[in-house]
Each structure stands twice: as C-alpha cells, then as structure tokens.
Design a protein around this nucleic acid. Structure first.
Lengths: 250, 250
DNA sequence: GGCAATCCTTGACCGAAATCAAACCAGACC
DNA sequence: GGTCTGGTTTGATTTCGGTCAAGGATTGCC
C-alpha cells in the first residue's frame, strides 16, 4: 500500500492547487472526476500534514472534517471512560476518513506515522458529494468494503485465540503493506510482502487485536523461536514460513 | 423496531405489486422514491418469507441477492472452518441486507424469527441503484451508520468483560426492540423498552458477544439474583434497575 | 560517552472465562 | 398423565491470557 517516495513538487502546497500531481489521485475517491469537478474540490480542500501520534479527529466530537489519506498510516480508535482502547480501523494512502452525513464521529483518528492528508470541511464535502453521484458511488463502494473488512475483524476479536489473532494479523499486514510495484521495475502486483515494517508499536498491535502488550510480545517471541518469522528490528517482520502462519491463523 | 402487526392485504403477494401498502415503506431505502421508480422496483423485486432458522444468503457464495427486511429479525454471521461462529450484524425491519456492488457476500444471513423480506437480484439492484442517486445516497447513509455501529461492537468484543458485554447487550436490545409507537395510542417515541423478548437463544447471545453459552447463562443468572433484571421466560427480559445496568456496561 | 525516557521482553502468579460433565426444565408429542 | 428432545442451568476443573513486577534494549539528548 505504500506509495512511491518520489517527491512531489507543489507550487502551493497549502491550497490543493495540484490535484493533478497527487500520488493517490487514481486510487482515492476523487478518481474519475473530470476537470471542473477536480477544480471545485481543490477550492474546498487543503493539504495538511499530521505528525506521528498527532490526532486529526476526536471521538464524539462534532464531525467537522473528512479527508483523503495521501501518505502515511492512521488509526481509528474508540475508547472507554476508563482508558481502554480498541483500534477499529486503519487508514492507508488513498483511504477516506471521517464521517460524512453525520453529526458526530464514532472514532478518533490519530496518525501512526507522519502523514499527509487532504482535508475538507464536512459540510462542504457533504454538499459536493450530493451533487456528484459518481463520487457518492465511490464512497459507497469503499464503505461497503470497509464494512466487510470490519466484520471479518469481529470474528477475530470475538472468536480467535491469541496465536490465531497474531498469525491473522501478520498475514493481513503482509497483504496490506505489500509493495504496489513502485520500487520494482515491473508494474506487476508483487503479491503479499515477505518482509515489512509494521506501522504499529506493540501496544498498538494489542489494541488492534484485543490483547495486552505482554501477550503480543510473548506470541511474537514464540513465532520467532519456532522459526516462523524473523524480527530484525522492533517493528520489522520477515515471514519465514507463510504456510505455518496460515495454519496458525485458522 | 417491531412493526405493527396489522395484517396487510395484497392482491398479489408474490409480486411486490403493493409497495404502497408496505409497512416499512417510509423507513426503508425505498422511502422517497417517486411513483415511476417504485413501479420499476416492484417489477424487479419479489416478496419472500423466511422461516426461523432458514438461511437467505450463504457466506462466500456469489452475492446473488440483496433485500429489504419487512418483518422479523435476521442474523449476519461469519464462521471459521472448525465451526466457531460470530454474529457480525443483526437486521431488523426496514434494514437492508446483502452485498451490492461486490462479487461475494462476507457473511451468511439466517432468519432468527419468521421473517418477510423483499428480495432483488443483485445485478438488477446494482443497475437500478446506479441510475438513482437518491437511492444510493440512502444506502450510503445506512452503510455509514452500520459501520459506526459495527465499530462500537468491536470495542465490546475486544475490550469488555463478560458482565460488561451482557449489560451492554441488554441495553442495546432495550433500545432496538423499543416499541415504535404502534401499539400505543400516542405516536410519540416511547423510549427504550423496559421489557422485551429477545430474538436470540442463549447460544446466539454467546455468538453475538464472543462468549460461551455457559458464561452467558451464568451472567443472566447473576443479574437476576442481584435484582437487576427479571427473566419471566426463556427469552423474556424485564429491566428492573436500568441504572445498575448502565453502571455495569462501563 | 553517560543518562533518561520509552518501549519491549520475560517471569511469577492470578483470575476470568472456557471446558467438561451432569442435571434440569419446558414444550411437543403420544 | 408420561416420555422425548432441545435448550438451559449449574457445578467442578482447567487453561489461557491478564496482571503485577522486574529487567533489557533502543533511541534521543546533553
């Protein structure tokens, strides 16, 4: 999912005067809009950077903004009054975040890595979307896919054991962090990544899987000593035995 | 959420020649469509009854049909190869079920009570929806709301204890099964139900909350002996101390 | 380099919920 | 009435993962 790191030069990086140079332009919901529409969107939107750890949207706040992720990874979380946290979604480049057509957002959005997003005032976006069925359709397709993915994760949270959770997680990461052909000559899909760098700390993996940090750590150690994965760095994973992982994932 | 039980007479109950008498007409996604549109939908759709326990859609099957729920309650489930089950959604009257714009359905749909639905071939529905932005917009709003609800449930599955799960579940049921003013003289919202009949067996409650049937049973017994609820029948619940439930729900 | 802060790992122990097993109950049917 | 059946409750026991606590490893900073 990572985008190519080729620098993008913008005449005016604040105003989105340069949707045409946007690296997620073909994959985000704005794909397929024609020139006048893109121009209208450009007027409404602004580029923003969000540093790792910085929040973009607060849970239960008025839903004031929506955004497209250009670069980086962000987490969507819900929390209980006593501070327990559950990650309920992860947004990658080209993903849409925020809650259009609703008063409040059900989840907080916080950057996991330094990120760039292009944000819109929710009201502006809502109005624009209602006038552009093609955009709404893209948003609908995306939302339906996200709902499917979320429902799959419910099975993991409700019914899987810790080893199954970790194995499923690693396989999922391996797919979502797969190289999209940017750093390779061929444009072909290179398939799931054999090695990758997690955008999560151990605590965040725990918050994603409904486990504690200690259990996550122990399971990683177990996989390492069983020769299923190598862990060259804190957040680096190399899959040595994908078959074993798939067995474990259940 | 229950609809009034006043019988609906149909000239031809098989063909949906009588959308105009449909009891969920004002709340389902077809609300707001004009006469010619409704007529076109009528031609595409068929009414169907589904008996309690009977499946309507199979997980991983080709997504062949979508539907509106007219009456009854259905569960959406995902299962593992070894037979563990997780309920990932519950559909009530006026809810939309199925996976438009996608090749396969991520969840099975099975009736919990005898139910009536109006079904459409997915292809037909997709085509119709793309030509009717207002319908797609309604579907989008619904899908966004369902995603919010699903994410809330992830917090429950990943981070809540058994007592918290049960309390949250009962409060949720109390709201969703609330009388919608049908059986009362006033049309006013009567608020959350104080007593209601669950559409779930104990096992199904377990599948919804990510627990075992024994744990569910024990928690119900505990709530009863603590005087928080009364359980006049297998599936009947009467909330005696809502405040206590809210405390327990965390 | 030394030091602090943060993150991660490891160990000992505990407890909540699962598992295993046995009653119990409520309808349905004869 | 009796019996059968499927769902439910209850009890005894186990286990998985959480909690508590300590120790390492990395990173950043002076």
């Amino acid at each position: 999912m990572r985008d190519c790191r080729r620098p993008v030069r913008l005449v005016d990086p604040e105003r989105m005067s340069a949707c045409d140079t946007c690296i997620v332009r073909n994959r985000a919901i704005c794909a397929g809009l024609d020139h006048p529409e893109i121009a209208a969107l450009s007027v409404m939107g602004r580029r923003r950077t969000v540093s790792a750890g910085e929040p973009l949207i607060w849970e239960d706040d008025d839903s004031l903004l929506v955004a497209n992720v250009i670069e980086g990874v962000l987490k969507l979380t819900t929390s209980t009054a006593d501070g327990r946290e559950q990650i309920v979604g992860v947004a990658y480049p080209s993903d849409f975040i925020g809650r259009p057509f609703g008063q409040t957002s059900a989840a907080s959005v916080v950057a996991l890595t330094d990120a760039r997003v292009c944000v819109f005032a929710r009201g502006d976006f809502d109005r624009f979307a209602r006038e552009h069925p093609e955009l709404e359709h893209k948003l609908l397709e995306r939302t339906l896919a996200e709902l499917d993915r979320t429902r799959g994760w419910m099975m993991l949270l409700g019914r899987k054991s810790a080893p199954e959770k970790i194995a499923t997680f690693l396989l999922d990461m391996s797919e979502r962090l797969a190289d999209n052909g940017c750093t390779h000559q061929s444009g072909a899909d290179t398939g799931p990544a054999r090695q990758f760098t997690l955008p999560f700390s151990r605590q965040q993996v725990a918050d994603l899987l409904g486990l504690t940090i200690e259990t996550v750590s122990r399971q990683f150690t177990k996989l390492k000593s069983d020769g299923v994965v190598a862990l060259p760095g804190r957040r680096d994973v190399e899959i040595l035995d994908r078959g074993a992982l798939e067995m474990l994932a259940g």
